[in-house]
Structure formats: structure tokens, C-alpha cells
Design a protein around this nucleic acid. Structure first.
Length: 360
DNA sequence: AATACGGGGCC
DNA sequence: GGCCCAGTATT
């Protein structure tokens, strides 16, 4: 245990008093959230996946609708992937939904439909990383495991004045040690949730409400007046812009051409209007490209709109054009002609929902 | 150790 | 326009 930097950080830290102050505050001040209605491990799992990189207020309506549609683990396992993606539509990071269903099916077949309480088995499930594993174990099963997310790193970086760069993957393990050493054995669920709730409500990234903080007296950063300087986090570089041509192709019966994206990569298995990077084909040659790829002749009519869509790592500039289907038979297997009123049955990313909206 | 992977809300 | 969010998988 010597030369462990953790001992230096935890020196003079009053663990039992901290546990009490944190848990006491959490039990009084916690928000009334839908996944806190009961301790159904399945619901806790779903909520934890949805909450990855996503704010509570965004998740609430999705969670309610999702649980209504797939009330149990078995219901989700039995669903079509397209149904699941449709329920996830607009929430982002769609691989979360596909991994969740994959993992739920694994639990049904390999674990008699019961979510494992073994850390190692849980970690084997798709989409369950160190954070989600700890969250499920502690919140659903009252097992004292760390669940370190951005909140927890921010809170502990201030409490113990840790100035490691929290954007680095390896640093998470340091904070897991902090939690392991301080977590309440009696109530690990309230302890972990309390840390996150504190990070969300009081110990916020900017202008933390230290005057309202239940653990202010435990906070080294506050005592030194450096709470606004923590945590240390390197900033990410800005996104690359990619211009696309997008085509809303309609036949004479009013059907519209859409296609499913590849099963890997960005927006995997989601649907879209045909689109092509502008650096591969310009508008003049787009008719040829469409004929070659889809086996149909079209006539481009007019520009409908320009859309700028920002992702975390890139930006789409979409030039959307209306086109009429002149002749030919659809040869692309991932594409279909769909009546306008059936488009809403398919899961579209938000960028293409914007186009959909423009059509109606 | 870095990068891909969404989208929305805040300043 | 950048930052942040109850992160994970892949390279």
C-alpha cells in the first residue's frame, strides 16, 4: 500500500462523515425519476444505457415510452431490431440500442432471463462497460462497486483536489479507487447515486453551488478556492465538414425512395434519403450516379433546402434536391419505395427527420 | 492512447 | 461556436 498516491489524496478525508452527509442529502433531495420508481434491474439497465452521454431531461420521455413498449427483458429480446431503433429514434448513439438488445437476448438465452450479479459476466454483455456494470451492481443489487461517470470524476477531482486529466481513459481507474475506498458498504446504491446527483445538481461543471453543497466541509478544492479550476480536461478538436447531395425521389404514385444504411459505422441500420458526398459526384453527374446505383432514371427538379447537421465528430452540409422517378426498376437491395404516409414507420436519424418534416 | 459514435441544451 | 452530458467499442 505504500507509494500509493491514493493514500495521499485520502489523507485527512473523513470517510464515514462524508458517506453520511452525502447519503443523507441524496435521500432528502433526490429527483423523482421514472427509473427510481422500483428496483427492477432491467429498468435500471435500460436507464443507464440511455443516460450514457445524455442528459436526464432528454432521457425521461424516451425511457417511459421504451418501457411501455418493452416492459420486460423478454419483450425487448423478442422485438424486431427496427422496432427498437424506432423507439430510440432521435436519442443518438444508436449502437447503444442494438447492443442493448443483443445483450438482453444473451441474458435470456444464457442466464435464464436474469441479469447476472457477477461482475465478470455482466462485463461480457455488449454495451456494458465499467460504468454501467458498476451502476447495475450497486443500484439494482446493492453491491459495493464503483460506478464512475463524468459526474463522479468531477466531484472527486474537487473533493480531493485531483488534477489528472479526466479526458484520459486511464484516469478513470484512479477515481474507481477513490470510490472503492470510500463507498458505503451499507448503502452503495445511495452512495453512487448521491455522487452523480451531486454532480448533476450542485457540483456542476460551471459555477458549482458550493454554498448549498452537503459535503462542502469535505471539499479540498473549495477550501483552496480552486473548485472552478477542476476538473482538468483537455478540449477536443473541432469537427470536419462534409458536403452531401441528398435526393428526395418520388414516383408518379407518390412513393418516396429511401434506403437503409450499412450495419456498421455511423447511424448503422438507420434509414435515409439517398445521399452522396459532393466530392464524389457533382449535381450535373448525380443523375448518372443514381441510375448506376439504384437502376432508375430520375430528373432532378429543384433544391428543397440546405441543412447543416452537427455530430460530435463531424458536420454534414446537406443540399437536398427533389427529383422525379422517370423509369426503371429499383435494383438496390437496401432501398425501397414507400408511400409517404408509411415513412414514419422507419427509424431516421435527426438529420433526415428534418427532410421528412419538410415534405409534410 | 486516440478515435468513432448523436443529439440537444447552455452560454 | 464551443462545452457538457449517469460511456463504450474499436483500433
Amino acid at each position: 500500500m505504500k507509494n500509493n498516491p491514493l493514500n495521499d489524496y485520502l489523507k485527512n478525508f473523513k470517510i464515514e462523515a462524508f458517506q453520511h452527509d452525502l447519503i443523507d442529502w441524496f435521500q432528502k433531495e433526490q429527483r423523482d425519476l421514472p427509473w427510481r420508481q422500483d428496483k427492477d434491474p432491467y429498468k435500471i439497465w435500460v436507464s443507464e444505457i440511455m443516460l450514457q452521454q445524455t442528459k436526464v431531461d432528454t432521457v425521461i420521455p424516451y425511457f417511459n415510452q421504451f418501457i411501455e413498449k418493452f416492459p420486460t427483458l423478454v419483450d425487448l429480446a423478442d422485438a424486431n431490431e427496427q422496432e427498437v431503433l424506432k423507439a430510440w429514434e432521435g436519442l443518438g448513439y444508436y449502437s447503444r440500442a442494438r447492443n442493448l438488445q443483443n445483450a438482453v437476448r444473451e441474458v435470456v438465452t444464457s442466464y435464464d432471463s436474469k441479469i447476472p450479479q457477477e461482475s465478470k459476466q455482466l462485463a461480457l454483455l455488449k454495451g456494458v462497460g465499467p460504468y454501467t456494470k458498476g451502476a447495475i451492481l450497486s443500484i439494482a443489487y446493492d453491491i459495493p462497486e464503483p460506478a464512475v461517470d463524468g459526474n463522479v470524476m468531477r466531484v472527486f477531482s474537487r473533493l480531493l483536489m485531483i488534477d489528472h486529466d479526466i479526458s484520459k481513459q486511464s484516469v478513470r481507474r484512479l477515481f474507481e479507487q477513490c470510490v472503492s475506498e470510500t463507498i458505503s458498504q451499507d448503502n452503495p446504491s445511495a452512495f453512487n447515486q448521491g455522487l452523480m446527483e451531486l454532480g448533476a445538481l450542485i457540483c456542476t461543471p460551471k459555477k458549482p453551488s458550493c454554498m448549498l453543497c452537503p459535503v462542502q466541509e469535505h471539499c479540498k478544492a473549495y477550501h483552496n478556492g480552486v473548485q472552478e479550476q477542476l476538473p482538468v480536461k483537455t478540449k477536443k478538436k473541432k469537427q470536419k465538414e462534409i458536403p452531401y447531395l441528398v435526393f428526395v425521389i418520388q414516383d408518379d404514385q407518390g412513393n418516396i425512395l429511401i434506403e437503409q444504411r450499412p450495419e456498421e459505422g455511423l447511424l448503422a441500420n438507420m434509414w435515409q434519403f439517398p445521399m452522396i458526398p459532393l466530392f464524389e459526384v457533382d449535381l450535373e453527374h448525380s443523375v448518372n450516379w443514381i441510375e448506376q446505383k439504384y437502376g432508375i432514371k430520375v430528373s432532378v427538379e429543384n433544391n428543397l433546402e440546405q441543412i447543416k447537421h452537427v455530430f460530435s465528430h463531424l458536420i454534414w452540409q446537406l443540399g437536398v434536391y427533389k427529383a422525379g422517378l422517370v423509369s426503371g426498376n429499383l435494383s438496390e437491395k437496401n432501398a425501397v419505395l414507400v408511400p409517404k404516409n408509411e415513412l414514419a414507420n422507419y427509424p431516421f436519424p435527426v438529420s433526415h427527420q428534418k427532410i421528412l418534416k419538410h415534405l409534410i
